[in-house]
Design a binder for these strands. Structure first.
Lengths: 139, 139
DNA sequence: TATTTGTAGATAATAATTTTCTTTTAATAG
DNA sequence: CTATTAAAAGAAAATTATTATCTACAAATA
């Protein structure tokens, strides 16, 4: 995470323990947590940290381009420190959010360019279905 | 819209003027309006209609499967009466939402199945970029 | 035409997120 | 190593999209 230090220095931002903890947690998990979930997870080690700090830090990290905001269709956002372009899949039954890994969907931007006059920057691809665990449960 | 009448009857729902107007407006536009935008648009002809009615009707229409809820990343939802599976493209500058038409992205569900154990139901594909109008403006 | 049941509309409530303001702290210079 | 300063944390209030509640009304059926 040396580059995180550099990145913060470049922008005259302070790399506080809270900010570092939030980023590190996001890097460590594949659960695509919401702000609230991050808060609950860090509460033990940072008992005084407030939700506002989580939100403000997430915004900062997004602006820096090291975190992505996901819109899975719930009433809140999810966050992901894996900034490589990759699809997500959401379980309609339990709400968990997983990466789809090893698949290459990078061609999508070029494909879309054929059908629009927009200048395309990026995309988000969300699949919806039932996760293996919930499939078992409903049997 | 004869099938809408039938659909409502089947579910013992009442096809009120308000509901009909909301659906008709969504059918008539490609602007992917938010609840608020629908409200503003119908206010002239239905001065007594409340936002709550818009929201309740949208929920009903979604349950009936004749309207789709879009999550473009703003702080509100957008709605679309074109229920065929098609991608959307959002202008990062002005926020407008367009369809990507004539493109066939239906293969995506099958493609994703190769990389996950989820049972896949559907997907949403959002492109982000700059629309032609905003491109001109920034020149 | 009466009756039943669902719905409209007004309003209050909820919940995620943002803002404000004061105190604290990280980074830098001396 | 300390003083300084600009940014950030934390607490609390504010905002905003959406939902729930409740009463009066209206559509469908008998």
């Amino acid at each position: 995470m040396e580059n995180l230090t550099l990145l913060f220095k470049e922008k005259n931002l302070k790399l506080t323990p809270q900010r570092y903890a939030i980023y590190k947690y996001l890097k460590s998990t594949k659960s695509h947590p919401s702000a609230e979930m991050i808060y609950d997870n860090l509460k033990a080690n940072y008992p005084t940290m407030s939700l506002a700090t989580i939100y403000k830090t997430l915004k900062t990290l997004i602006e820096l381009g090291v975190v992505i905001e996901l819109n899975v269709g719930e009433d809140n956002f999810r966050y992901d420190a894996n900034t490589s372009q990759h699809p997500h899949i959401i379980c309609l039954s339990c709400g968990r959010v997983d990466d789809i890994e090893n698949a290459d969907f990078n061609f999508l931007d070029d494909e879309a360019k054929k059908y629009t006059d927009y200048k395309i920057d990026t995309h988000q691809l969300y699949f919806y279905g039932i996760c293996p665990e919930c499939q078992k449960k409903s049997e």
